[in-house]
Amino acid sequence: MTKSTFYDIIAEIIEEDPGSVSGQELLTDLEGWDSMTVVAFLAVMDKHLSLAISPKELVEAKSVADLLELVAEKITG
């Protein structure tokens, strides 16, 4: 998965348009990011990347860059 696909998946989870997430945002800046989207992120990464993310690390993530770090091994460019 590319970084831009990853950002578009984040946008989809928070119900924003593709391209609206640039990777620089803090999660607190994303209006739709809440406890349900955290769960959605787990589900979507499980589905697209077959990646079991640690919920503890996910809850500790502060920014979109931190989310990217959680799936870094599956990001190809």
Binding site: V38, L42, D46, A52, P55
Partner: peptide, 12 residues
């Protein structure tokens, strides 16, 4: 309740 942990438990 730790929602993400419970969700992961259910998925697994």
């Amino acid at each position: 309740m730790n929602g993400p942990e419970i969700f992961k438990f259910a998925l697994d």
